[in-house]
């Protein structure tokens, strides 16, 4: 287990020289980073920089070709992947609703583990009214689906939340509400969040620390204020076309 940093949470997730290739194409190269309990680590990167792949590796939806990922000091390949995924919730870029009602969706994870949950309470937590519970999940708006997906991930009571561009496809107002919700939930539930985005303003608003991922390489990882103070011109040039 890594040492505790003064003034910050304990290191709970660590990536060491992580690399990934798919069909001969390099996706991630030598990514090393640490995530501390209770923080929001935002990975900022242009489209195609490997952000989603990085989250998939942490959730073990796929395995890295190189390097190790440690959760609580243990290699995630030594952990039961099913237990790991219950501890590390993920919200996908495009919300995927399971066939069934909103209540079925929210209750899916806990039911697998033989646990109960409070779907109405979780729905309220993400700012939706409980009268949606009986509605077929596939018929919700994109913004509602995004919130249900968040509630579904929270239903497993995870220690970590991996958020993959959770505002993509939303209008400005809905995106703003989701971001506010994430900040509020993180504080209220003491969640550790790894948030990936290609939008500078979202990183600036939510992050405690920001990592810049470009072409699969983590260029830098700094506390938010320092990150934006020192790199503002370069960042605006890099993200101007996004």
């Amino acid at each position: 287990m890594s040492a505790k940093d003064p003034g910050c949470g304990e290191v709970c997730l660590e990536l060491k020289d992580v690399g990934l290739s798919r069909h001969g194409i390099r996706i991630l190269t030598g990514v090393s980073l640490q995530v501390r309990t209770g923080e929001n680590l935002t990975i900022l990167g242009p489209s195609g920089s490997g952000k989603t792949s990085l989250l998939r590796l942490i959730n073990r939806l796929e395995d890295a070709d190189e390097g190790t990922i440690l959760l609580g000091g243990r290699d995630i390949r030594d952990l039961d992947p099913v237990i790991l995924r219950r501890r590390v919730g993920i919200v996908f870029q495009t919300p995927v609703m399971l066939h069934g009602t909103v209540a079925d969706n929210i209750g899916y994870g806990p039911a697998l583990a033989g646990n109960g949950c409070n779907p109405a309470g979780l729905l309220e937590t993400v700012g939706l009214k409980p009268d949606l519970l009986a509605r077929p999940a596939e018929r919700l708006s994109v913004g509602q689906k995004q919130r249900v997906e968040l509630a579904r991930a929270l239903a497993n009571e995870p220690d970590f939340l991996l958020l993959d561009e959770p505002t993509s496809g939303l209008d400005v107002g809905s995106a703003e509400r989701i971001l506010g919700l994430i900040a509020e939930l993180q504080e209220r539930l003491h969640l550790t969040v790894v948030f990936v985005t290609h939008l500078l303003d979202q990183a600036e608003r939510l992050a405690d620390r920001v990592g810049l991922l470009v072409q699969g390489k983590l260029e830098r990882l700094q506390p938010r204020d320092r990150f934006f103070d020192r790199n503002s011109n370069e960042l605006h040039a890099l993200f101007s076309e996004q």
Binding site: N59, L61, V82, I83, R85, R86, G89, I90, F92, T94, V96, L98, H99, Y108, G109, L112, A113, R152, A153, N156
Partner: peptide, 20 residues
């Protein structure tokens, strides 16, 4: 595949995720 991976990500085994 997206739905199957969503189920896996919520803690389903491959058997549970592939049930449908």
């Amino acid at each position: 595949s997206s739905e199957v991976e969503a189920r896996l990500a919520l803690g389903a085994t491959s058997s549970q995720a592939a049930r449908n």
